[in-house]
Design a protein around this nucleic acid. Structure first.
Lengths: 343, 343
DNA sequence: AGCTTCTGCACAACCGGTTGTGCTTTTGTT
DNA sequence: AACAAAAGCACAACCGGTTGTGCAGAAGCT
């Protein structure tokens, strides 16, 4: 029979049980034996707590313990498979590790990233994971100032441990697989999407170029178009490249699924919906995109392994403070459906 | 020059400024005029706060104000466009409204939903939005007990205001559009995916049936297969339906994008990747799925309008407690690309 | 019976803010 | 010069927990 007007506190329970708040606290936390509370009283308190749907006020607990139990993550977006599975997996693992996970998405907006980090610090997160943030080092500075460790995911920083995909190797493998589709020929190829200011895009471009070098093919820098990630930027970049003639490349390396969205729609506009699409490669995976044409190869980032590495770092803050800033690179997975069907 | 060992508190600032904690608090909160703090002292405190990267401890604030500023949302998944845009839009709007949004995904697991709600209550969220939860009423009871108002999104409950799509009308429109692809004929049609225990699935089935009724076509209940949402459930349900003969329906109403994933892969297994796919309808939208075939029609739920309605409810808790439990239905949007290309 | 040891618990300080109250000093008025 | 009003701030209680300390009574020992 809860009085329902206010939340039940340990003081309420103490009064109901005819005991003190400290005792109730001990019982709730399961240290009643350590604190020599009689089993009888403990049972009584637990029963009352249950009857009243008592829930500890974690804010108060955090205040006195000086540990909030919260762990924060900043993510650029939820609306693609890569980041959404990161968020989803992170939450599950964080809960398993006894944390209360707080994930928030900041739409690749540096100011919002900073504001979100500040908010999280205000709410006393014990650690912040910066996923795909535009300036991980700035976030690191902000956090380290408040004594909150950070870890970078997806995009690396120079001041904290970073866990990222092996972008170079992934892009190299992808490009080689794409080139294999043109035996003996030199396809008209283009790399599109991403920002050449970010580490991942630069590494992927490096992998793209390396593949051509290995095949002994020339590659003009005009074919590298890091126009940004957004769908509309990718589509206008492609339209511009195609020009008035409407000639699209034979081979397209698209640097994210969100850019791919723009590319697909631009292709339809330029060549019509029924026309044969160019051979597509995409760094990142999506189940539907993988089936949109027979001629698409996708690179899947190994989110599980990345998260495993992340929670390894969290569980063993060994070199905390030691000058060693690690860069952990996780191999990617090539998803070449046509090749699978072929065998 | 921060001492960096510990977080700066208002007490630290007070000492540095040669004033009291209460005064610092007033300055930080901007009520220094109301509390007649001199501009000079206020500026000094603000300067110090800035120099030391001071951040208010929101837990402590929440404790004393008895208002946490946090608003929680439970979502089943992040990995589809519908829920991810809900999460993304919710966060943006919540921030605009001055809240600190906490979103968490519970993978359609009733126990996890309950546990997550409890955790959120512990952290003193001021309100909980239950999106697509399996048992909204149970969550409502839990929360109302702690005096925390809830609102249901996507799936309705009977005890709190619910904002959902007009599932019946959406399904009706979709099915009619699908049937229009078979002029003069009675296609072999199947409804697949979802749970017949949830309100949305039931309403969509009702809309599906209604369309056939309006066209004067018979519809056997054996063609309704609410086999669950998961991709593998949908694919085995389809395989089973197709039987040894491998005859797939001509018209498929798929009840969610996640089920569609399973359907697409099952179709490839049954008929081969190059075969003509059946005419597909899908309740929910995905940019890549929409382009996977010429013959797919998708229903897009109007997330923006739903969130607008949600924050309307939040801003005007008018009938708080009044027996009126509202059900707000938002129209859906039909995405028929082929029809658009046709005109 | 007297002393020690152990059991079982209450008490109070503290975590970092917020806010009502009231005291001192300055300013203004006549 | 005397007094009222206003300005400028300090103080302390409170929010709901946690935890170190200490005290009363029971139990054990001789």
């Amino acid at each position: 029979m809860p009085e329902s007007t206010k939340k039940t506190t340990i003081y309420d329970l103490a009064e109901l049980a005819g005991t003190s708040a400290g005792t109730v606290s001990a019982v709730i936390n399961g240290n009643w034996e350590k604190r020599r509370i009689s089993r009888k009283l403990a049972t009584k308190v637990l029963r009352l707590a249950d009857e009243h749907g008592f829930a500890l006020n974690m804010q108060a607990r955090a205040l006195s313990r000086e540990r909030s139990g919260m762990i924060g993550m900043i993510v650029p977006m939820y609306d693609n498979r890569y980041f959404s599975s990161i968020a989803q997996g992170f939450e599950a693992r964080a809960r398993d590790a006894g944390y209360f996970p707080i994930v928030t998405c900041t739409r690749r907006d540096p100011d919002l990233e900073l504001a979100a980090a500040r908010a999280m610090l205000g709410y006393q997160v014990e650690r912040l994971i910066c996923t795909g943030t535009t300036d991980p080092d700035r976030l690191h500075d902000l956090c380290s100032h408040a004594n909150v460790p950070t870890t970078n995911l997806d995009l690396p920083g120079t001041k904290a441990t970073s866990i990222i995909s092996d972008n170079f190797q992934g892009a190299l493998d992808l490009t080689l697989a794409l080139l294999d589709r043109f035996p003996g020929a030199e396809p008209d190829a283009v790399f599109i999407g991403g920002r050449d200011t970010d580490h991942n895009t630069r590494e992927r471009i490096r992998g793209f170029k390396e593949a051509f070098a290995r095949r002994g093919m020339p590659l003009d820098d005009a074919r590298i178009l890091p126009c940004g990630y957004a769908a509309d930027k990718a589509s206008s970049a492609l339209r511009e490249y195609a020009g008035a003639g409407g000639v699209v490349p034979e081979l397209l390396f698209v640097n994210s699924t969100i850019s791919l969205e723009g590319i697909i729609s631009a292709l339809e506009d330029i060549t019509g919906p029924a026309a044969k699409k160019p051979t597509l490669g995409c760094f990142d995976w999506d189940p539907f995109a993988a089936r949109i044409s027979q001629d698409i190869i996708m690179v899947r980032q190994d989110v599980d392994r990345m998260l495993e590495a992340l929670f390894d770092v969290i569980a063993h803050p060994a070199d905390e403070g030691a000058g060693t800033v690690q860069l952990i690179e996780v191999p990617t997975i090539l998803d070449d459906r046509a090749a699978r069907f072929g065998t």
